[in-house]
Amino acid sequence: MTEFLGLYNYWIVIFLMMTGFYIVIARENLIKTIIGLNIFQTSVFLLYITMGKVTGGTAPILKGSHGGESHGGETHGAENHGAEHGQELIAAAEGHLDSGVDAVVGVYSNPIPSVLMLTAIVVGIATTALALALVVRIREEYGTIEEDEILEMDRNS
């Protein structure tokens, strides 16, 4: 049983995702459906972000001697040592946390899911805005935002 407890993050995400899915398929109100889609979408963001987390890691903002306060000559030095630091980072990522990690290189969580989800959030707001505009337009035409009433009007006309 203990080997499955490490998967709790996926189960929480799945619970949230299924709640959103339930709202989408069970509710007739168009605005409620969009709310359900939003909840589904946010849970997908959470799925990606939890996969990028590394135990003991920190946010992928580099710290150390060639950070913020010392640019210039240091930046050049960092270029030469880049590959070497990369190796140390791989070592850190492979679990040898106490060997070969100096003050410059720490353990960072994966930045790639963050990047992907930043794009997804912005695209998500675009689709939400479009859906809401369509709801406003449907309300103007039909006088209701309940899906079954709209379908009935379509059948009768």
Binding site: L62, A78, G82, A83, G86, L89, P111
Partner: peptide
């Protein structure tokens, strides 16, 4: 993961 360090230069 070396791109993490290389991103700075």
């Amino acid at each position: 993961p070396s791109f993490v360090e290389k991103s700075q230069p």
